[in-house]
């Protein structure tokens, strides 16, 4: 197998780890500031869109689309768009990880130190390639699943499912306007454009995707039932939920049940985004090492110049969010058009 060739089960594991980490951290709180408890409805709608995007990307991956894309000149604009897309996503997500670690775990740490300690393993994972990331995911997923199970099975709080109502807590125009402005938190399928998969007989991938997004919606549902409009205070939803574990009265604070899988997932997600960034950059420039060096520096230098990262997270919505959402759709549509055109050409040639 080449470095980009993974098993479908590994792809399923990476989807589970990365999607849960991104969707169940700060997104619900940020979203709820604008759309209140309708965040649940918004998440359902966006999850459906995300699942569709995953299916479309999988169609591309299954047909070894990346090889066909490499044969065309359209790869340049698509890869430039992808490079910028992954850069924006990784830059924001790394700021979020650093911010969380500094606020929650090491409050006296300087942010530049954190960024350096995050960027080194992320770059390393990016260099090692998708196969290594997928293997790491396979290793950590069991621990993550156990942690999530313990988190949910022993969750004890004052649930009021009436807090969901009304499902549309704001005007429908404002709801959709706000819903699509968080596009940066979606598009987890795009790094998989660069992989090739060794097909599995079992339907592990569709089952995992559906289970992952069901889990995301269920956790959000429980969170809205606990917090209602005050979900805005849950700056990391998984960690906040772990406070309500009934075992904590016996075993002490069980925040690690969320923090550990969250950190695993974050590193793998960042590594995956960096790898995808370098893959798209390599297709533009043609060489891997300069792209890796440039990408690592392009990520690190802006962080060094900044003293606060929370404003990055606060500005993930709005125009940037719309652009990211539109980019996600356009990129997926473009690669599928390229795939179809190449298939027809190849068929005619035969």
């Amino acid at each position: 197998m080449t470095d980009n060739n993974i098993y479908t089960r590994q792809m399923a594991i990476l989807i589970f780890l990365s999607s849960t980490v991104i969707k169940l951290s700060s997104l619900p709180a940020l979203w709820a500031m604008e759309i209140s408890t309708s965040v649940f409805l918004a998440m359902i709608i966006m999850s459906v869109i995300e699942i569709i995007i995953f299916c479309l990307v999988y169609v591309f991956v299954q047909a070894d689309g990346i090889k066909m894309l490499d044969e065309t000149k359209v790869k340049y604009p698509i890869c430039i768009a992808l490079y910028l897309y992954f850069f924006a996503k990784l830059f924001t997500f790394m700021a979020f990880v650093a911010n969380f670690i500094s606020n929650f775990m090491f409050d006296s740490i300087s942010l530049y130190i954190l960024i350096i300690t995050i960027i080194v393993p992320v770059v390393y994972l990016g260099i090692k390639g998708m196969r290594s990331i997928a293997r790491s995911g396979e290793f950590f997923v069991i621990f993550s699943v156990i942690c999530y199970f313990l988190l949910l099975a022993f969750l004890e709080a004052d649930f009021d499912f009436g807090r969901f109502k009304p499902f549309l807590a704001i005007d429908s125009t404002a709801f959709f306007k706000s819903g699509f402005s968080y596009g940066l938190w979606f598009g987890d399928a795009l790094p998989f454009i660069f992989v090739t998969v060794k097909k599995s007989k079992k339907a592990v991938l569709p089952v995992t995707i559906i289970l992952t997004y069901t889990l995301i919606c269920v956790v959000l549902m429980l969170s809205v039932a606990i917090f209602g409009d005050a979900i805005v205070i849950a700056d990391n939803l998984l960690v906040n939920l772990s406070m309500f574990n009934q075992l904590s009265s016996v075993l002490g604070r069980l925040q690690w049940l969320s923090i550990v899988p969250w950190l695993f997932g974050s590193y793998l997600e960042c590594g995956m985004l960096f790898w995808a960034m370098t893959e798209s950059g390599m297709r533009i420039v043609g060489k891997k090492v300069p792209v890796i060096v440039f990408s690592a520096l392009a990520l690190t230098i802006p962080y060094m110049a900044m003293k606060r990262y929370d404003f990055i997270i606060e500005n993930t919505s709005g125009i940037l969010g719309y652009v990211m959402f539109a980019a996600m759709i356009l990129i997926v549509v473009s690669i599928l058009i390229v795939l179809n055109v190449r298939r027809r050409k190849n068929a005619k040639a035969i």
Partner: peptide, 23 residues
Amino acid sequence: MLTEKKSLLTKTHINTFLTDFAS
């Protein structure tokens, strides 16, 4: 307040307080 589950005692956690206030 934390381990006693019975009785008519009012138990208001911070999250309940903030949730009620935001409602």
